[in-house]
Simulated assay, not measured.
Amino acid sequence: MIDLRFPTTLFAMMLIADAAEAGRATVSSTELATKLDNNPSFVRSLVAPLVRDGLLTSVRGRSGGLGLARPASDITLREIYRAAVADKRIWDQRDEMPHVDDVTTNACRYFESLTDEIEDTVVATLGSKTLSDSLADLKSLPPVAA
């Protein structure tokens, strides 16, 4: 099963950053839920790690909502990724393989090494992109034909 926490979290962060660019300090979890095609309690659980890690602020109450804790230009996609997925790796490996020959004996170690290399590359790439840059890139895409 593909883990959709990071893309969904990034989408939420882009929506909040877009609102901030437009002069809105906060976005409600209900508004985010509507745009994410989900429910407000899911959105609150999705953004809780972002609040915990100092990427978002959360204001309770009728006029509250979620806002950026820092400028979008100071938030990297790596920070969002780490908050969203915590220590979960890109791929899990099969540890239960029987060790009957060289391939099955070493497959798990090889796959772990390969996954580490891929994860390092992904995290490095995400560290070179800011939320602000990503939002600008998104807005520069040509419109989708109807």
Rank of each mutant, 00 (worst) to 15 (best):
R82A: 11
L138Y: 06
L15T: 02
L15H: 07
P142N: 10
V51G: 10
T130I: 07
T105H: 13
M14S: 10
T125G: 07
S113Y: 05
I2K: 03
A124M: 13
I118M: 03
G61H: 09
E119W: 03
G64N: 03
T76E: 01
S134N: 05
I80A: 02
S128W: 02
M13W: 00
T34F: 12
T26W: 06
G64Q: 03
S28D: 05
A124Q: 15
D53Q: 15
D3E: 05
L56A: 02
R82N: 10
G23A: 08
Y81G: 15
L141T: 06
A12C: 10
L32D: 00
L36W: 12
I16P: 00
G64S: 03
G64R: 02
T9R: 12
T26I: 11
P98M: 07
K139E: 11
T76S: 06
D3R: 06
L68G: 00
E31S: 15
F111I: 08
S28V: 08
A20K: 08
L55P: 04
S28L: 06
D92T: 08
A124I: 09
P98F: 10
P7N: 08
A17Q: 09
D3L: 00
A107T: 07
L138C: 04
R109C: 15
K88Y: 03
D74S: 11
L141A: 09
A48D: 12
G54Q: 01
P143C: 11
E112D: 14
A124G: 12
A20M: 06
G23C: 07
A72M: 12
D101E: 14
A48M: 09
V51F: 07
T105R: 13
R24G: 14
K129R: 04
S29K: 04
S73K: 14
L15R: 08
V47R: 00
L56H: 04
A69G: 08
R70Q: 13
G67F: 01
E119F: 01
E119S: 05
A86S: 12
V47Q: 00
R52K: 06
N106K: 13
M13E: 00
F42I: 05
I75A: 06
P98R: 09
T8S: 04
K139D: 10
S45F: 08
T26N: 08
V122F: 01
T125H: 10
D120V: 04
D37R: 14
R70M: 08
L126F: 08
P7I: 03
L126C: 06
T104I: 14
S128F: 03
C108Q: 13
R5N: 04
T9H: 01
D101S: 14
D95F: 15
V47T: 06
L68R: 01
A86R: 13
M14C: 14
I75V: 12
S63H: 04
